[in-house]
Amino acid sequence: MTTNHSAAGLQVRELHHKFGKTRALDGVSFDLEPGNILSILGPNGAGKTTLIRLMLGLLPVQQGTIHLQGQVPGSRAARCITGAMLQETRLPDTLTVADQLRLFSAAHPAPLDFDTLIRSAALEGLENRRYSALSGGQKRRLQFALAICGRPRLLFLDEPTTGLDAAMRQDFWRQIRNLSETGTSIILTTHYLEEADALADRIMLLQEGRVVARGTPAELKATTRGRLIRCRTRLSAQELKALPGVELVQGRGARMEIISSDCENLLRSLLARDSSLADLSITEIGLEQVLTHCHPSAPNPTDTEEAA
C-alpha cells in the first residue's frame, strides 16, 4: 500500500446522521494528522458521541465518508489500528485486571507485552483484583489499558477523565502526551476546557451537529481579541454597552463581566464614571470565554464544569 496523504491519519467528509427525525450530525468534515490531538468540544447533545461511534463503526454511516488510515470504520483492518475508551462502560465484575487485559490483547495481531501494559496504565499490584473491587480511578485506568493494548494508531477517548480527581487527571494527560509523541493520533471529547487547552493541537467546537468553530487553542482565543474585565459597579448593562471598546456585557446585579477590545480606554472611562467601582479584575480571555462569547445562544458549552 502506498502511503499517500489520504492513507495517513483520519479523514471525515460531509458526515450527516439522523436518529429517526432528529438530526444528530449535519455535515461534519475534518482531518486529523498522525500524532496530533484533536479535541471535540460541545454541549451535551451536540453530536460528539454520535461522531465517535460512527468513526468506530458502532453506528452505520448514513451519509458522508470516514477513512481511518484509508480503512472503513468497523472493518477488521480499522479495528486493528484503533483503540477507544467509551463513556459509561462497565466491564464484567468477575474478571480480574489480568483476565481483561489478556482477553483483549489476544484479539490484536501485535499487542503490547503484559508488563509494559500494566506499567503504562499504572495497574501494578492490581493484576489479580476483580473489576468489582476496583476504585473508580482504577476502573478508568483499566479501560485506558484496554484502549491501548493493541498499540493503536488512532485512539478515541470519549470524556476519559470525567470523575477523576485533579492529580489523576494530570497523570492521564501525561500518558496521552506520551502516546501522541510516539505518533498515535488522538481524538478526545471533554467537558473540561482546561483539558482541551492543555492537550489539544486542534479544537473543534460542535453545536447541534455542526462544526461552529475550529482551530488551534491559540487561534480560537485570538478570534476574540481583548480582555475580560470583572467588577462590581453601579452602572447598568445599558450604560456599560455605550462605553468605548465594549464587545459584550453580561452579569447579574452589580457584578458585571465585560469583554473589551480596548481595555485601557475602557478602564479610564469606567473609573471616571463610577467612583465606587470595586473588586476589579482583568484577565486574558480563556477558551471558556471564547466559546461562550462566540456562541451566546449555546446553553453552556462547558456544562458548568469550572476549568480549575
Binding site: G57, R79, T89, P92, G150
Partner: peptide, 20 residues
C-alpha cells in the same frame, strides 16, 4: 447485561470477530 453495560460495544471495537 453486557450489551447495556457497553462491554459488547468494546468487544465490537476490538479486532476479535463477533463469532468468537
Amino acid at each position: 447485561i453486557e450489551r447495556e453495560q457497553g462491554w459488547l460495544a468494546l468487544k465490537r471495537i476490538s479486532p476479535a470477530p463477533a463469532m468468537a
